[in-house]
Design a binder for these strands. Structure first.
Lengths: 158, 158
DNA sequence: ACTGTTTCGACAACCACGTTGACGATCGTA
DNA sequence: TACGATCGTCAACGTGGTTGTCGAAACAGT
């Protein structure tokens, strides 16, 4: 019941996970800023992924991201103001408004994917590809699969 | 330069890191709420660690957490209002106000450490202790050591 | 001893991101 | 046609951050 190892108290694990996430996100946005997207913020990339090439609605976006439809709507507002998303009326349902990537949004999404791949490759170069894959497998094993609705069509451009 | 493996695009790595972090934090606070601390929020545990048993000041707290002194001050305000921290005048410097854990704060800190250890033990039971240790080693290797000032005295009760 | 610089905590204004609750408009159906 | 569910939006609020300013206190140099 006591700490298994005094040099590895339990709370360094969440700290390291957060540090790993923040490192990737900070590197991503440093690079995106260099590539003409200085106003993109952490999590906007995830929104782009969730919107996907086919577009979505605010309510659906909220469900995919695990947040309320109001919060999703406000995030869409900001990205519309920045020129990354646009709202168009759904011809088949006057209540709905489709949220779609603008050309600038597509550019940001594509660049995000490339940079993330490069960052992962950097980790693989430092740790070994097998260690990175093992890290992902282990994390998959201890996290709920639907925490970020990874299985929802729309992620991965599916 | 292309994705090494179509089933592992680069952006699942940050997603998994975030999911791992959120899983631990959510589990922690679910358990802390059961143990009489329902108003503790994500990151309060980190603040407790940063304050430490010896206490600190708002400015120093901000430096340890990597945020502005004003943000640290506001967080202290909230935790004072909740009864977890207290401010006392520094007799040797009238400008400074020492921030210290109250008995309730000490209780929260102790319980957080215990629960985090239990959660880490749960991961070790599922993945194997060696995999968890490898995961931590790998993350240490790819994250800047000072991202959360892990070396600052005060963390780890040091 | 006085003066100028630095540091500390606080205040104000602001922004990003999230929450609930309500509500009008629209859709689908009994 | 009337009713219930759904969509987007508005309002109010909470939390966790930011920058800028400022008075009070400490410190260093002349």
């Amino acid at each position: 019941m006591a700490t298994a190892d005094p040099d590895r108290p339990g709370f360094v694990l969440p700290l390291l996970l957060l540090a790993g996430f923040r490192t990737l996100i900070d590197d991503l946005h440093r690079e995106l800023a260099r590539q003409g997207h200085p106003d993109l913020r952490p999590m906007h990339g995830f929104v782009f992924q969730a919107v996907g090439v086919g577009g979505t609605t605010a309510t659906d976006l909220g469900q995919r991201l695990g947040i309320s439809k109001q919060a999703a709507g406000k995030t869409v507002d900001r990205l519309v103001a920045l020129g990354y998303l646009e709202r168009v009326d759904d011809p088949s349902d006057a209540r709905r408004k489709l949220v779609r990537l603008t050309p600038r949004g597509h550019d940001g999404l594509r660049r995000s994917a490339v940079v993330f791949d490069q960052l992962r490759a950097g980790w693989a170069a430092r740790l070994g590809a097998d260690r990175v894959a093992a890290l992902e497998d282990d994390l998959r094993a201890v996290t709920p699969a639907d925490l970020f609705r990874l299985d929802v069509p729309g992620w991965f451009g599916g």
